[in-house]
Write a protein that binds this DNA or RNA. Structure first.
Lengths: 194, 194
DNA sequence: TATTTTTAATTGACTGCTCAATCAATAAAA
DNA sequence: TTTTATTGATTGAGCAGTCAATTAAAAATA
């Protein structure tokens, strides 16, 4: 069996498996066995490549952050005026790549983890600060001094819509979420113009 | 030691302790020992009064739901016109009683639990449906057909603001959250009037 | 009133299980 | 022969849940 150069492949497989496993069992409920089984390897191998459960989960979090940053950057590169750039960010948040139930669950699990885990909190804070800074920057020409508050509101609403999207009983669609967000932004822009 | 009639007192103490313990260790990280210690009793007693960890956590969730329902009802009873009633709901969400860090953490932990626990999901769905129904009812005279979408947006933003309030690194205040929410509602009302 | 009996509260000690982490052994590629 | 991939078996810790024993209040009885 031993083909060489497996390390990066296995690490990626395990991280992807971790996202799924977290979705089904929760961040604290998940075991190395769950993750390894889903990746088709033994629990011992997961330890071999990550050293500890903490490290695997931490790598999973960084993976999610990285994927999102990539998606956002791609969309922003193609956007034009400020309003278009704001929309690019919103779309990145609800694009199908980001928006699978498992990915949302895992994201939210890391949010919760950040409440009592300072390492996770640091990572998440960087992401949130950057998101808000981007929004603020593009909102400034649209709403002036109202930009900081609106950016915070949008960031909060994004996370709230994610939270609701993660609850199966509510069965909300990404399209609906985007509509609600756009209504919010448009409402505030209309007020700002008067 | 044995004073009689301890059951309701101990149950309440344990539920309150559970909220604190969940805040510090997370829903799945928390142990009966954590909770019992914080309540000043032995782990065995917690089992005696609740039968299982699941039952204790479930009772804790029902406690939070009940407390919020009470706060909302009180405020709604004193509210006047539709806009005032909407504001009463928003204020109930960010009132200090509801808004301690521990209480928010516990709320969010139950949200996460609902992703893979159908019993929790059922309870939470009832709460969310009722919240949205109340909002929709009072928004109808203000924005007509836009009421359902706006109600969903408000509900999502409330939860997003809670989520952000739970993250210590962001240090957001309840007052700021209320301001952002009111701006959102006012923006949509202004658009609806034109 | 004095006593015995019953009942509720409470805990320490124990059990069994799950799981993270370790390690020595095996297999194959280089 | 060396290096890398991989696993089965094992260890040790932590925790939910059980149970028998202890204490004291309350109720019943003498």
């Amino acid at each position: 069996m031993p083909k060489r150069g497996m390390q990066p492949i296995r690490r990626h497989e395990l991280v992807v498996a971790a996202v799924q496993a977290i979705h089904e069992r929760g961040l604290n409920g998940v075991t190395m066995g769950d993750i390894a089984k889903r990746a088709g390897v033994s629990p011992a191998l997961a330890h071999h490549y990550f050293g500890s459960k903490d490290e695997l989960l931490s790598a999973t979090m960084r993976h999610l952050l990285g994927e999102f940053a990539l998606a956002a950057r791609r969309r922003l590169a193609e956007a034009g005026d400020p309003r278009g750039r704001v929309d690019a960010i919103l779309e990145a948040c609800f694009a199908p790549e980001q928006f699978s139930p498992a990915v949302i669950s895992a994201w939210l699990a890391f949010y919760m983890q950040s409440i009592h885990d300072t390492a996770a909190a640091r990572l998440l804070a960087i992401y949130l600060k950057r998101l808000e800074a981007n929004l603020r920057h593009d909102l400034r020409p649209l709403v002036g001094d109202g930009a900081p508050a609106l950016a915070r509101g949008i960031a909060a609403m994004i996370d709230g819509l994610w939270l609701h999207a993660a609850l199966p009983t509510l069965h909300r669609s990404p399209g609906e979420a985007l509509g609600i967000l756009r209504d919010y932004v448009d409402g505030r822009l209309a007020v700002a113009r008067t």
